[in-house]
Each structure stands twice: as structure tokens, then as C-alpha cells.
Amino acid sequence: MSEPSRILIVEDEDAIANGLRFNFEAEGYHTVVRSDGPSALAFLDERQQQIDLVILDLMLPGMSGYEICRAIRDRDPLVPIIVLSARTLSEDKSHAFECGTDQYVTKPFALPELLSRVRNLLKRRRQIEHVFQSSQHDDYAFDNVKVNFRTFEVTRGDERFSLTTMELQLLRYFIEHEGAVLSRTKILSDVWEQGADVTSRTIDNFVMRLRKYIEEDPGNPRHLLSVRGTGYRFVAEP
């Protein structure tokens, strides 16, 4: 029997943190609660076992959730992160996705929906890792770029970048549809799970991040091209 998934909850409101802990443990997960960024990051640095998912509030004492999200990504590019926040502006969501979160849930939230998102993210991570790690083609190369699906890394020249699960999943999608014009609606439907709180702007933000990894000049891309009024097209050899 496999070990229960371990969830790190970073939340300073005791009522919410304790409620999440109770319900996650009722679902069979192991949980760890931290009330601020430094203690959460210290736990990640000291942990003996892998954390499988992070629930992260944005408004925390001393260190913002955005900073914490970036710091977690520096330590583990693959762990799923769900931001749980009372902030509802599109700018807040865009910034959170730029920092590396996988999903954004606004407070107040419906517990069954959050539990469903947790299950889906944990399942998706296992599936993606299995597909990538069992692939006969661990590498994909174009121009001076090399993508390693097994290690979740992109190398461009002498630079090496670690990708998050969503970034690598989206890049793989573009590579698998090389040359095709892909609408934002189709990308959203095929790459993100149904009901995920993402918009076309989210896709644009992810594309901008991918361009930083694979393009010599992200402002004038040669491989990941914009198609006006529609979406994007990936071209390996311009």
C-alpha cells in the first residue's frame, strides 16, 4: 500500500487551518500546518519526507504568499501549489500564476470543490510523472534548446531552467502539436482540468514564461509564436 499524500498548509487563520487539517486528514492525507512563510520554508528545508501538495494563503505575516510561492518553486519545481486567498482581482491571480501556483481558489470556498481540486492535482502529478518518466523519448531538441521530460528541465545554450509541472505539461502540448495553430480555448480545454480557475490571460502568462526558457529574445520569439486573435503556434525550425 502506498504512503498517504502529505499536504503542507500555510495559513495564519487558525479556524481555516484547523478546518483544512481536519478535513484533509479525514480524507486520509497527512498534513502539516505552518502559519507563516519562514516556518513553512524551514520545514521544507528540514523535511525528511516529500511534500506532495501545498495549500498557500497570500496574506501572511512578514512574508507575502507570492514570495513564499517563488521560494517553494526554487526548492521544488514540481510540487502542486493551490493558492487560497480572499483576493479576487485578476491582477492577483495573474501574479500568483507568474509566481508558480497551479490553481487559485478564492475565499470563501466550497470544501467539496477544494477537496476535488486536491485529488485531481495529486492524481495529475502522478500521471504526468509516470508518462514523462516512462517515455521512450526523454529529450526533445530544437535550435539550441534541449527539453528533458524526465528531469523537468530545459537547457538553452549554457543556461538551465527547472520547469513546474504545468509549464512542462504546456510545453509538451505545444511540441506534440508542432506547426498547428492552437486557440486559447483549445489550450485551456486540453491542458487545464475542467473547472480550473484560469483564463486566457493565464495562458498568456504561461507562454511568456516558456518564452523566457526557450527563446534567445523572448520579445521577438522564433519558436513560440502568437497568432493574432486566435492563440499560439509552436515551430521547431523557423
Score class of each variant (00 low, 15 high):
M1C: 03
E3I: 13
S5R: 07
S5L: 07
E11D: 06
D14Y: 08
N18V: 14
F22T: 14
F22K: 12
A26W: 01
Y29W: 14
V33N: 02
A40Y: 05
R47W: 00
Q48P: 01
Q49V: 13
Q49D: 12
D52G: 05
L53M: 09
I55E: 02
L60I: 00
G65V: 09
E67A: 13
I68V: 15
A71Y: 03
I72E: 03
R73C: 06
R75Y: 04
P77S: 12
P77E: 01
P80I: 00
L84I: 12
S85M: 07
T88R: 13
D92I: 11
S94C: 09
H95V: 13
C99L: 10
C99E: 13
G100D: 03
T101D: 05
D102L: 03
Q103H: 10
K107H: 04
F109W: 09
A110G: 11
L111H: 12
S116V: 05
S116H: 14
N120D: 11
K123N: 15
R124K: 15
R126W: 08
H130Q: 12
H130P: 00
V131L: 15
Q133F: 07
S134K: 15
K146C: 04
K146P: 02
V147M: 03
N148Y: 05
F149N: 02
F149C: 09
F149Y: 15
T155N: 06
G157Q: 08
G157R: 09
E159I: 05
R172P: 01
Y173E: 03
E178I: 03
A180E: 14
R184W: 08
K186D: 09
I187S: 06
S189R: 15
D190M: 10
V191S: 11
W192H: 03
E193K: 10
E193N: 12
A196C: 07
A196F: 11
V198K: 04
F206G: 00
R209I: 14
L210N: 08
R211M: 08
D217I: 12
G219I: 01
N220P: 00
P221F: 04
R222D: 03
G231L: 07
V235I: 13
A236E: 01
A236Y: 02
